[in-house]
Write a protein that binds this DNA or RNA. Sequence first.
DNA 1: CAGCGTTCATACTGGTCGGTATGTTGCGAG
DNA 2: CTCGCAACATACCGACCAGTATGAACGCTG
Lengths: 211, 211
Amino acid sequence: MSTAARRQPDRTRQTLLECAFEEIHRSGFRAASLDAILESSGVTKGALYHHFGSKTELGYAVVDEVVRPWVESSWQPLLDADDCVSAAIRLCEELTRQRRARAIEYGCPFNNLINEMSPIDEGFRKRLQQILDDWRNGIVAALRKGQARGVVRKDIAADDAAAFIISAVEGAIGLAKSKRSREFLESSMRGLMAYLETLRARPGAGHGASR
Amino acid sequence: MSTAARRQPDRTRQTLLECAFEEIHRSGFRAASLDAILESSGVTKGALYHHFGSKTELGYAVVDEVVRPWVESSWQPLLDADDCVSAAIRLCEELTRQRRARAIEYGCPFNNLINEMSPIDEGFRKRLQQILDDWRNGIVAALRKGQARGVVRKDIAADDAAAFIISAVEGAIGLAKSKRSREFLESSMRGLMAYLETLRARPGAGHGASR
DNA sequence: CAGCGTTCATACTGGTCGGTATGTTGCGAG
DNA sequence: CTCGCAACATACCGACCAGTATGAACGCTG
């Protein structure tokens, strides 16, 4: 049996992180059962507690190494776009279209964790806040760049708009869980895209203030 | 001790509902401890199981008799307003201002329950969906009335806007839990109010379509 | 006042969970 | 080859929790 090496600590750790992420996504962190994670990953309890000191530390590692990159990859395209409004609308369409049954049913892992853990655990709260700050700052930067280039209205407050947009996205995904259909999510995202259109600089406004 | 009658089944039931609501708000439904509810309410386990068949049925009763009226009272003012946009902005200001530490820290009970319970319990899902549908339909009605009266632009889709607005509100309250300060909530609500202003019919547009 | 059903009180049970103690084995260093 | 530590494996523990069994007491009815 040389094809499958019997000791692969890095791979064991990664498998645990991925299976823990899935279980936490399905059940939430507190209801996530270590036994379930062990069963789905084929790892034993001794191995788990060799790699992670406690369930909480496992949760922190999931946030740092799975949730954070996952969230960041979802908005990074905004930074490179020439027209951030169009890029944002494209991301909205993608999100509406590609969401599979699982994501509709269980929602956004990032938002789920904030809702469940931020009020009761400082370690989670700080990590999740940082992810949220980075996301918001990314949108702020994209909007400011758009304002400098004349594709975004100059009379909007970029930080307020960024917080508002993130709230709407996460709120829509969260509330969609109460529905069996995707109608609410799609409708809310149409509302968001209509709002994004209002952020465009009116043609002819040029470099001057709009009023 | 005739001042405090020793048998008051209705009052016992109501006390249980209120204490259960508080505990569920703090801990979520699954992590809510019956023992904690019993301690804070001064009721014994025998009394609880006399009034409610199970923890789940207690949760359903909390949704029907506490959460639902609480949510409805928050948006009912919209229905009677002559100018629904101004009324909505007033509600936003009120929400931003009056939210005490507890609500900032633990979020919206309604949104919390959807996030936690809708994916895993049909009874919760159906009840919460109905509350959300009513809320959304209330906003749709207010917007349509506003369109008929000429205070709201006619080129917006009322159902999309309603879903979008609710998403933004609940998303903002939820995400604010990851912060210690109210800055995110306040910023996001400013973004929402700026959006609400864009819904106003432009003066002079009169009864004609805007384009 | 007698009887009885509603209303509440107490003690207990079975099950699940996170965590630990202890033992075993692979595998690179020397 | 062997020594030693990292990397696992197994069995077990105490805590908590929803739910139940059983019984007591209140207060209305006749």
